[in-house]
């Protein structure tokens, strides 16, 4: 379990001091004004347990209020250690209601999934982002990636994807599959499966992305086109399974594979636990 000492003693509402919240709020508004662009923000390191995703926590802390209902998912599940801890943390420091139901939530903080239940207008999806720069694996220098974004010079990404096709016959990237936002910035959708990429496109919900270590915030406003990069002869495709969920029978959702006995028997179940429970 994460260190609980940070939830004890004196603290500000939603943990962050007011000046830090204002700074993050200003960065969020700039991020909304320039969709897909990574807005740097300052501020101190946030002492939080490893795995919580400080960027997502900071964004949620800057926006959350007593009228909100918070849902937290980790890999699609509401009941993992991190999801439970983060939910308790905000219930404690921000005095908010929490839920596991996607449709009841006003804010959904997520790591590695987008809920299967379609999001509604007025909902805010907060992504925890480990590495915000989609070009980082191709270009380690920040000054260079910044220039590439400034010039919309994304040939390096196209070449990388095409090399993957040349080598594997298809684009092998299945997580963190790069997208282009409103025809301008190439953006990392965070390590969600590419299965979730179509849900980002023209969603009525507001998407906010927080990267804590690199101190970047970026956003996709509602109804904004989000296109997964592809080629005319190799169009973007999402994963499909021959199996259906062993619990709810869904053939539509993202499935996790589970080994259920020593003989190596395998089952497929929905990664989104709320969606799965709602269907049983």
């Amino acid at each position: 379990m994460p260190d609980t000492s940070i939830t004890e003693g004196a603290y500000n509402y939603a943990y962050l001091d007011e000046q830090t919240k204002r700074m993050i709020r200003r960065a969020i508004l700039k991020a909304v004004a320039v969709p897909g662009y990574q807005v740097p923000f300052g501020g101190r390191e946030m002492p939080l347990p490893y795995g919580w995703g400080t960027g997502g926590i900071q964004v949620t802390a800057a926006i959350i209020g007593r009228d909100d209902t918070l849902k937290v998912i980790d890999q699609g599940a509401d009941d993992t250690t991190n999801a439970v801890s983060i939910r308790r943390f905000f219930a404690h420091v921000a005095d908010v209601a929490t839920t596991t139901r996607t449709e009841e939530a006003t804010i959904i903080q997520t790591r590695h999934r987008v809920p299967e239940t379609p999001l509604k207008g007025g909902q805010i999806l907060v992504f925890q982002v480990p590495i915000p720069e989609p070009l980082r694996m191709l270009e380690p220098r920040e000054t260079e990636t910044r220039t590439l974004h400034a010039l919309s010079e994304y040939g390096v990404m196209q070449v990388s994807l095409y090399e993957s096709i040349a080598r594997h016959g298809r684009i092998s990237k299945s997580y963190n599959y790069p997208v282009q936002v409103n025809g301008r910035y190439i953006m990392s959708p965070s390590p969600i499966p590419k299965f979730d990429n179509p849900k980002l496109d023209r969603s009525p919900a507001l998407q906010l992305y927080g990267a804590g270590r690199e101190k970047r915030i970026y956003a996709v406003p509602p109804y904004t086109p989000v296109k997964s990069l592809d080629f005319d002869d190799h169009p973007f495709e999402i994963e499909r399974w021959n199996e259906c969920c062993a619990f709810c029978g869904s053939t539509e959702s993202f499935l996790d594979e589970m080994i259920v006995d020593d003989a190596g028997k395998r089952l497929f179940v929905c990664s989104d636990t709320d969606y799965c429970e709602g269907r049983r």
């Binding site: 500000n12 007011e18 204002r22 508004l29 800057a62 926006i63 009228d67 007025g122 406003p221």
Partner: peptide, 19 residues
């Protein structure tokens, strides 16, 4: 109520920016 009022006002401003 500076902390809570600012939070609520920010969300209203964010709503305006997002729409």
């Amino acid at each position: 109520d500076p902390s809570h009022d600012a939070q609520q006002l920010f969300r209203e401003v964010l709503d305006a920016f997002s729409h």
